[in-house]
Computed example of a mutant assay.
Amino acid sequence: MGNHSMFSEFILLGLSSNPQIQALLFVLFLVIYLLTLIGNMVMLLMIRADSNLHTPMYFFLGQLSFLDLCHSSVTVPKMLENLLSRSKTIFVEECLAQSFFVFATGGTEACLLAVMACDRYVAIRSPLLYSQVMSNQLCIRLVWGSWGLAFVDALINILLAVNLDFCKDKTIPHFSCELSSLFPLSCSDTSNNFALLLCSSVLHFFGTFVFIFFSYIRIVSTIMSISSTSGRSKAFSTCSSHLTIVILFYSSGFLSYLLPNSGSSMEMIFPLQYSVVTPMLNPLIYSLQNKEVRAAMRRILRK
């Protein structure tokens, strides 16, 4: 990279240039990051410790908690460091690596949410055959497939971006490195990079969203065919947590990428939501909305 670029570092402008506001933001995001670590680790330990949660649904929830730990840890530590630092620099290679892991973990979460929607459909459509259809081997393959597909997609994009020359500007108006924010800084032709990133986003993120959307159409139609009111209520309750997380993840992601760039600091609200806030909220949402998780937590606390 040093032979191709006029500089070896980028400057992440972050959320504010005011030192007092930076100090407040540091405390705020440090608390959020610690809550993210504690909440998701507790969820992982609870699912592992309680035998009543050894089902495909909670296996996927454990994978989601692990993924939230990874996704949050890619961006938040560097953001906290820059909030206390005057230079706010990041090496070009480090920035590309962060872009890769942001893309890979975000893509994996999109795939995993689609897998969880399929799991909920099978559980509601065929409850008696649920454990046979969603076998341990199939669950493991689906998780590995989600990770593999997202990492291959991210690797293809980042390998094309590695050959770019960066000489126009070294400031990134963001708190983290993402591929879409790096392309305007390059003096190379980035048309192929933009085209590849657009295709990846459409196929990977929009494709999983469409899959989840039609899965929930089938889920709702199946629930409405249940004769008893209590049965319908129970079926809806098993999907409410997952649906809440889907809405949080995709609404912030789509708004972040679809809104036009105006240079306003308000544009960073949506990236902050899906990369910092949502990983903290996911275990809380499942704890509050899921009776089995609350019961498992009470059993562990009694022990």
Rank of each mutant, 00 (worst) to 15 (best):
residue 1 M to P: 07
residue 2 G to I: 00
residue 5 S to K: 06
residue 7 F to H: 14
residue 9 E to D: 15
residue 18 N to S: 13
residue 18 N to T: 07
residue 19 P to I: 00
residue 22 Q to G: 03
residue 23 A to S: 14
residue 24 L to P: 00
residue 24 L to E: 06
residue 28 L to A: 14
residue 29 F to R: 04
residue 32 I to E: 12
residue 35 L to V: 02
residue 36 T to E: 02
residue 36 T to W: 03
residue 36 T to I: 01
residue 41 M to Q: 09
residue 43 M to H: 00
residue 44 L to Y: 13
residue 44 L to I: 10
residue 48 R to Q: 12
residue 51 S to H: 03
residue 55 T to S: 14
residue 56 P to G: 03
residue 56 P to E: 12
residue 59 F to I: 03
residue 61 L to D: 01
residue 62 G to R: 01
residue 65 S to G: 13
residue 65 S to E: 00
residue 67 L to V: 05
residue 67 L to K: 03
residue 72 S to V: 04
residue 73 S to C: 02
residue 78 K to H: 10
residue 79 M to Q: 10
residue 79 M to N: 07
residue 82 N to G: 08
residue 85 S to P: 06
residue 86 R to S: 13
residue 87 S to Q: 11
residue 88 K to S: 09
residue 88 K to R: 15
residue 92 V to H: 06
residue 96 L to C: 03
residue 103 F to Q: 14
residue 121 Y to Q: 07
residue 121 Y to S: 02
residue 125 R to I: 02
residue 132 Q to K: 15
residue 136 N to G: 15
residue 143 V to T: 13
residue 146 S to A: 15
residue 146 S to Q: 04
residue 147 W to D: 00
residue 157 N to A: 15
residue 158 I to W: 02
residue 160 L to Y: 11
residue 160 L to T: 12
residue 161 A to F: 06
residue 161 A to W: 03
residue 162 V to I: 14
residue 167 C to K: 09
residue 168 K to F: 12
residue 168 K to M: 12
residue 171 T to V: 13
residue 171 T to A: 13
residue 179 L to F: 13
residue 181 S to F: 10
residue 181 S to W: 06
residue 182 L to I: 07
residue 185 L to G: 06
residue 186 S to K: 08
residue 187 C to M: 05
residue 189 D to H: 08
residue 190 T to D: 10
residue 192 N to L: 11
residue 195 A to W: 09
residue 195 A to Q: 02
residue 196 L to Q: 08
residue 197 L to S: 02
residue 202 V to T: 11
residue 207 G to H: 06
residue 209 F to C: 13
residue 215 S to V: 00
residue 224 M to I: 01
residue 228 S to P: 07
residue 232 R to T: 09
residue 237 S to Q: 14
residue 239 C to I: 01
residue 243 L to W: 04
residue 244 T to M: 14
residue 244 T to V: 14
residue 247 I to E: 05
residue 248 L to F: 11
residue 249 F to A: 03
residue 249 F to T: 06
residue 252 S to F: 08
residue 253 G to I: 01
residue 255 L to G: 15
residue 257 Y to V: 12
residue 259 L to E: 09
residue 259 L to F: 08
residue 260 P to Y: 05
residue 267 E to V: 03
residue 268 M to A: 09
residue 270 F to N: 13
residue 270 F to W: 10
residue 273 Q to D: 04
residue 275 S to V: 03
residue 276 V to L: 05
residue 276 V to P: 04
residue 280 M to L: 14
residue 281 L to A: 12
residue 284 L to D: 06
residue 287 S to I: 01
residue 287 S to N: 04
residue 296 A to C: 00
residue 299 R to L: 08
residue 299 R to S: 10
residue 301 L to C: 09
residue 302 R to Y: 11
residue 302 R to E: 11
residue 303 K to F: 07
residue 303 K to E: 09
